[in-house]
Each structure stands twice: as structure tokens, then as C-alpha cells.
Design a protein around this nucleic acid. Structure first.
Length: 575
DNA sequence: GCCGTTTTCGGCCCGACTGTTTTCAGTCG
């Protein structure tokens, strides 16, 4: 697992190169770009190196011969000489210090030269003694700003789940709409792209009363304090511990501004480069020709069209090849939430759910679903009240009775979330498994096995012929647990060979598989389901997060079996 | 240091806001 460390080292190298003068700023940029690419890569660079050698590394965008060598050097020796050399000259913890709002490499270096600040502890002491305000280029305000940044640095734990961020953003949008000050309001940024976690919120507003609008957002109940406030841009810290940027633009610029603030950054950089090649300038105000006339801008689709490409859905804008596909008019037609016909991962009070079978089924009816699959835990999950074979039999009887009561309004499918045990066997008898409409299986225990053992364990279960769906394949919990070790190539190949469908678990804390693994699994021609893993009725609304992940993984309706009617669903499950 | 629909050399995205400036550097996204 080298990605995060190498990304960190490359960023620090970039920080130090920035201090070497303008001549090296492009070199610094190259390191930063590579750091970004490597940092957001699912596959480990160590594995890439092992499997494909140095050529596998240079295939990564932004990684050329030199940086590939540096990665190899780190994987093999645990060190990068260039980094060590620079570090002798700049013995400073840039990684932490530059994370503090308002501090970049240059100001950090000034603090080091003037006060010997090497890390956040030194910085805190310097702040306590009010030493910062005297340094050239720093004043009282800077000192306060840095203090606030430092407090925030110690108080937050990184990025927030989309499941928390999106509802917050939607609530703010509703308030702005109700204010009557805005003609248009929309969510942009990584929230619009449905990333699994977001670092801040971006809200774009069209308003003819820009000043009043900025006052309004600065005064929202959700706001803890104001970070910056100008006539068109305001940044606030929200009480939930997330910063939020508000931008006001003219309606002529709405499309290009939405495009720009949706990102991601690399996608935008590529778009601007394409604009330049075509003789245009692209910024958040529009596309401008040589005579500085706006040729597009009010509509986002128009911006893409003007650059000679099809409209790219926000979830795909990650600079993963979508721009090339858009230019060739070969983009996939992404699945939408309206395509979903049922939910196959639902718990009830029979195990650790908080709502009854009836209540969960009624919720499915209210969502307009054609079918719902009930999948409570098996006995190995004793903390969740998992059931044994006998209990499952009476559970199925209850489902039959319920089906009679609800009639044709919905089809209720019998299943279970069956533990794949340590030895690869399943937690129920074959007889019980055969009574199910489909079998949703998952790893919950002994999660610390080696990559090879864990992969063998799951493949053995696949080969039993009783696994229809592998639920939350990596068993990760975002921001809490990394997940089990797996050889994904072998796993996905085996899923394809054995007709096992992979779950995209829509629970916001899981989102498993995530976008990168979906893209990887797709290469093996596997099918997917999106399941909410609901433990109460409200959880069934999590489907949209799973849809977000599926769309980020470029999936179409045909790839997702619960986007099909009951007939095609059962056909896909019964091999 | 990367990269190629003008290229193996010579470019490299672009603008808002702030503080401390006296015209701009630094930071951020």
C-alpha cells in the first residue's frame, strides 16, 4: 500500500521545489499532478510495478520515466533520494503545515526562516507567543487566520461522507431558493459528481442582487463563521465541520460556471487545453474567441458542444478517459435512479433491522418498486441476531403470508445475507439455501486474512454454486476501516466464470464496490446490483448514493440487474 | 518533469479574495 505515502512525498517535493524559484515551478507542478493521480488510484502502485513493471507506471497520466523511477525507488528501498536531499535543506513538515488554511509552501518557509517553525507544534507555540505578526508579509490578521486554521486542523477528521454532505447542501439550496434573491441555485463540486466523500460544498447562484445574496448566505443558520466574503464569492465554515463556497454569476455565465465549479480539477484543465487548441479561452464566465466575444456560457451542454464533444455527465468528470470518449461520441448512457425496479438488500426486525417485514415492504411499494428482496443475517452474525436454518424456514413462511396480503402490488423475494465463513463454506444448509429466490453472500468475520487466503475463501464460495450475489465485496467502512485484502483480478474473473453478481452497496458509509473497482470489474463482464443494505425504512432512500457510484463507474442500465423487470432479474440470478 | 490534431522542444488553466502592499504575492479551488 504505497499510494498515499508516495502521493504525500511527491506533494512535499513539489512544495520544496516551489521554494527553489520560478524556474522549477513547472517541475513542482508535475510532481503535484502525479501526486494527485497516485493518491486517488485504487490499484496500488506497488502492485502495478509488480505486475506490469515500470511501463505500467508510465501509463499513468502525469507519470513519465523519471517519476516512475522515483516510485520504483520508494517501493524497493523505502526512500526517495531526491526527497531526502531536499529535506536536508528544508527540514519542515510541509505535509501537515500546508494543510492549514491560509498556509502554502512559501509562507511556511518564511515562518521557518524567521522563527524556526518546523511542524504544527512549533506553529502553535509561535502563535501563543504572538510572534507571527512581526514577520515581513504577516500582520495581525494573518496571525488570527492561521490560528483559526490551526484550530480547524486539530478539530476535523478529513472528508465527509456524501450521505452527510448532500442532504446539508440540499437544505441550504432550498433556503436560498426560498429567499427570493436567486434566479437559479445549484449544487456543484464533488457533491454533484457524487464522490464518496467530499472536502467542501460548492453552491452556484444566479442572482441580480449579488451583495444581498452574499449577506444572506453568510447569515444562514448552518454557518459557524465566515472565511472570506466578497461581492461574488463567499466561503463559510459550516457547523457540521465542512467549508462551503458560494459563487454568484450572471445567467450568461451559468453553464460555464457550473461546468467549472463541478470539476474535477484535472477534467477542467484538459477542457481548457482543448479550448486553447481550438483558438478559444475557457473560464468560469464562458468560452471566448480571439476577439474576446463570448461564444458559449449560459448552458453547460453548450459549453461541451462548442468544444466539439458530447455532454459529459458530472459523475464521469474525473479525467479517466471520458473526454476522449465524448470527442468520439462514444460515451455510455448512464443508469439513472428511475431505472431501478427493486431493492435486494433489506433487513428487518427478524435480525438487526429496526422496522418490520411489513414496514419495509410497504416502503418498497411507496418507492414504486416491482420487487423487494428480504435478506436478513445468518447465525454467525450473532451480534446482529443472525438466524439458523430452522428460523429461516419460518421466516420464509412469514414472507409467503405477507405476499398473499400484498397481492400483486409487489413481489417479495426470499433471501438472506449469508456469511461466507472462514473456510469458504456458507452459513446455512444447502436445503435452506435452495429455498431462497436468490442468495446474497458476504464476508463479515475473520476479516484480517492475507490477500491470498481471503481471495481463495471467497472464490471457494463462488465455486459452490450457491452464491448469486457478493454483497459489499471489500467490507470497507469509509473513514473507519480499510476493508479486506483481495486479489481483485482473480476475484472478478471468478465472479464472471461463476455468474456471481457484484453488489454496489449504497449505504453511504460503505459504497462498496466503489467507482474505481466498478470500472475494474467491468473489464471482466460481470453484472451488478445496487442494494441499500437497509436497516430501517429511511435507508431505502440510500439508493441514490449507489446510483451515484454506479454512474461514476460508467455503468448503464443493462449492467445492473435490479434495473430490469422481475423476469429479467430472475433470469440473471438463476444460472 | 510531463507531453504531443501546430510539437521530441517549448509550452504548461485561470480567476477571486486577502493582507499588506503602494502594484502585488500568496493561497485556494
Amino acid at each position: 500500500m504505497y499510494n498515499s505515502k508516495i502521493s504525500e512525498l511527491f506533494n512535499e517535493i513539489a512544495d520544496m521545489l516551489d521554494l527553489e524559484g520560478d524556474a522549477r515551478s513547472f517541475e513542482a507542478r508535475a510532481y503535484r499532478k502525479a501526486a494527485l493521480v497516485i493518491g486517488s488510484l485504487q490499484e496500488d502502485v506497488g502492485d502495478i510495478l509488480k505486475n506490469k513493471g515500470i511501463d505500467g507506471l508510465t501509463e499513468l497520466p502525469g507519470v513519465g520515466k523519471t517519476l516512475a523511477e522515483r516510485i520504483k525507488e520508494y517501493v524497493e528501498t523505502g526512500k526517495i533520494k531526491k526527497y531526502e536531499d531536499l529535506k536536508k535543506q528544508y527540514p519542515i513538515d510541509f505535509d501537515s503545515l500546508t494543510k492549514i488554511q491560509g498556509l502554502g509552501a512559501k509562507r511556511v518557509f518564511k515562518l521557518y526562516k524567521a522563527l524556526g517553525v518546523k511542524n504544527v507544534d512549533d506553529l502553535r507555540k509561535a502563535l501563543e507567543n504572538h510572534k507571527i505578526r512581526g514577520i515581513e508579509g504577516f500582520g495581525e490578521k494573518s496571525e488570527e487566520e492561521i490560528k483559526k486554521g490551526l484550530d480547524f486542523f486539530f478539530s476535523t477528521g478529513g472528508r465527509m461522507l456524501i450521505g452527510t454532505a448532500l442532504p446539508e447542501a440540499e437544505s441550504i439550496v432550498r433556503k436560498i431558493e426560498a429567499s427570493g434573491l436567486a434566479q437559479k441555485v445549484t449544487i456543484a463540486g464533488s457533491t454533484r459528481r457524487m464522490r464518496e466523500t467530499v472536502g467542501d460544498l460548492d453552491i452556484l447562484i444566479v442572482s441580480s442582487k449579488s451583495d444581498k445574496m452574499m449577506d444572506f448566505v453568510a447569515g444562514l443558520d448552518e454557518v459557524e463563521n465566515i472565511v472570506v466574503k466578497g461581492p461574488t464569492k463567499t466561503t463559510v465554515m459550516l457547523k457540521i465541520g465542512l467549508t462551503c463556497d458560494f459563487r454568484v454569476v450572471e445567467k450568461e455565465s451559468f453553464g460555464s460556471a457550473l461546468q467549472y465549479f463541478t470539476g474535477n480539477k484535472e477534467h477542467n484543465v484538459q477542457l481548457r487545453q482543448i479550448a486553447i487548441k481550438q483558438g478559444y479561452k475557457l473560464n468560469e464566465y464562458g468560452i471566448f474567441d480571439k476577439a474576446d466575444r463570448r461564444v458559449a456560457g449560459s448552458d453547460e451542454k453548450e459549453v461541451y458542444a462548442k468544444l466539439g464533444m458530447d455532454y459529459i455527465e458530472p459523475e464521469m468528470r474525473e479525467a479517466r478517459g471520458e473526454i476522449e470518449l465524448a470527442q468520439q461520441h462514444r460515451l455510455p448512457k448512464l443508469v439513472t435512479i428511475n431505472d431501478i425496479r427493486g431493492d435486494l438488500h433489506v433487513h428487518t426486525t427478524h435480525t438487526d433491522g429496526l422496522n418490520t417485514l411489513d414496514e419495509m415492504v410497504q416502503k418498497a411499494v411507496s418507492l414504486g418498486y416491482d420487487y423487494v428482496g428480504i435478506s436478513d443475517h445468518t447465525k454467525s452474525e450473532y451480534v446482529a441476531g443472525g438466524m439458523n436454518d430452522k428460523q429461516f424456514v419460518s421466516y420464509f413462511k412469514e414472507i409467503d403470508e405477507l405476499q398473499k396480503r400484498v397481492g400483486d402490488s409487489i413481489k417479495v423475494l426470499k433471501s438472506g445475507e449469508i456469511d461466507i465463513l472462514k473456510d469458504g463454506s456458507l452459513d446455512l444448509s444447502n436445503k435452506t439455501l435452495e429455498m431462497m429466490d436468490y442468495r446474497l453472500c458476504a464476508v463479515h468475520t475473520n476479516i484480517n486474512m492475507s490477500k491470498e487466503q481471503m481471495t481463495n475463501r471467497i472464490i471457494k464460495a463462488f465455486e459452490s454454486g450457491y452464491v448469486d450475489i457478493l454483497a459489499h465485496p471489500t467490507d470497507r467502512l469509509i473513514n473507519e476501516r480499510a476493508g479486506i485484502q483481495l486479489d481483485f483480478d482473480r476475484l472478478f474473473q471468478s465472479a464472471a466464470d461463476n455468474g456471481v453478481v457484484l453488489e454496489i452497496n449504497a449505504s453511504p458509509g460503505r459504497l462498496d464496490l466503489n467507482d474505481e473497482l466498478i470500472l475494474k470489474a467491468s473489464q471482466y463482464k460481470v453484472k451488478f446490483i445496487i442494494g441499500t443494505d437497509s436497516h430501517k425504512v429511511e435507508h431505502m432512500d440510500f439508493m441514490r448514493y449507489g446510483i451515484g457510484m454506479a454512474r461514476r463507474g460508467w455503468l448503464e442500465k443493462k449492467d445492473i440487474i435490479n434495473a430490469g423487470d422481475i423476469k429479467s432479474l430472475l433470469k440473471a440470478l438463476n444460472r
